[in-house]
Nucleic acid binder design. Structure first.
Lengths: 232, 232
DNA sequence: CGGGACGTTGATAACTTTCAACCGGGGTGG
DNA sequence: CCACCCCGGTTGAAAGTTATCAACGTCCCG
């Protein structure tokens, strides 16, 4: 990672956004910005935890490895998002890895300062609590889907979730450039299987493709595929 | 649920344990204890969130339903544990269900009071943050396992995790009485498949059975089956 | 005694991964 | 500039895993 200064503006970072005005100078003094190249690993499972990261610009994938050439993407982080917070608490080692999906600038604060921030900014602590709660909900929903939902539904869910998080370009395609491999790792299946499911979704006219770009054509049907089947 | 009074003692509940002394009277005034019968549902997915629960005595399973007769057990809560906190944050409805595995006494506080407690007890908020972080780590580990680990490994992991949480009886059996169905729901597989895997584990002398009770015979080998395969 | 819930077992079907091969494009070195 | 190679995408066939279905047994409780 290459160090660079004065790129982070306070508005785009979770910490800055939720901290007291009086605390902002301290943040400014403590944070460090890094440029990260596409594909570069920011930290990986087992690394000792030294700090917490925020995405200033770009996109980051957070994932767990399995087996050298298999992984599960747990979450994506985009501009403004916090990541690396799984390093908090017991353990002292990151339980996950993070790498950049595109040229990215991350903002870094060391763990001691981060914990000091928690103590000083109750609102920040509260917001973080809410953030973790949402992550936990999503995580458990995904757990259940991995256990019970067939791959096709998981692909549908993955696509919807990507569009929700990253939005669409002017011509309606999901605004993220993701390899099929990464899409598969996000859906929790092999890339061949995901590929076949994508084909089915195309011929069923639920999505359409243009090169690697994906457009959701029939969002309602996709939702139906990915939907909670909750009753009683 | 049948209401009953004065059963909860302060030591066994997450909220009481982590709150300021001055706050304990307020808790005492606000909490309500309920007796819950074995198998009784405490709340279920979609129910409006009214409060947070603590286990006073007994055991509770927290799960997500799928499909009327399929579910995934996300977590167990035992004496002292908090549950229902997934109802925090946006949404206003529980994203999960909870029911008692045995006769249980739960302690309930309404959500407004709980949030007031957060504001008043920074240490409590911090502890809750740490708690959620650990849950998130576990949850993501389990996600990855569901995606990539074969059933046998997941069963091994489930058994180890049960023993870690509930300990063993004097004669070395895991100290929880769980139906095969529930074990399967925890491992994320059908009960037939789990049953076969248990048979394999028995004939490989990694576990032994006595009726429904399970004893881990070769914990190291089980761990190897369930282990992180992290490298690079 | 009957019924129901849970446990056990085997056979079969469905789904998903794995393996292997091919293709096309972009970049690199000659 | 071209040949080559490597990577990512695409496709088909086979193998492996897991779920489903069906049947039977047992125990407990009404």
């Amino acid at each position: 990672m290459k160090k660079s200064q004065n790129i982070c503006d306070n508005k785009s970072c979770f910490l800055c956004k939720n901290s007291l005005k009086e605390w902002l100078p301290a943040i400014a003094a403590h944070k460090t910005n890094f440029k990260v190249k596409k594909g570069e690993v920011i930290f990986k499972e087992g690394d000792p935890v030294t700090g917490i990261y925020f995405v200033n610009s770009g996109k980051v994938k957070v994932y767990k490895k399995w087996d050298k050439d298999k992984e599960l993407i747990v979450r994506f982080a985009k501009e403004g998002s916090l990541f690396g917070h799984r390093g908090l608490g017991k353990g002292g080692n990151y339980p996950i890895s993070a790498s950049a999906l595109e040229p990215t600038v991350v903002c870094y604060v060391d763990i001691a300062f981060f914990e000091a921030s928690l103590k000083v900014n109750p609102d920040f602590t509260y917001e973080l609590l809410m953030f973790l709660t949402e992550e936990l909900k999503q995580s458990e929903r995904k757990m259940r889907n991995l256990a019970h939902m067939p791959v096709k539904g998981r692909v549908a869910e993955a696509l919807i979730s990507l569009q929700n998080q990253f939005g669409t370009t002017a011509d309606g395609f999901i605004n993220i450039d993701l390899s099929r491999q990464d899409l598969a790792s996000y859906a929790g299946a092999t890339y061949e299987t995901v590929f076949r499911m994508m084909n089915e979704l195309v011929s069923e006219k639920l999505i359409s493709l243009s090169g690697k770009s994906i457009r959701l054509v029939n969002r309602d049907e996709l939702l139906k595929l990915a939907q909670d089947v909750v009753f009683l």
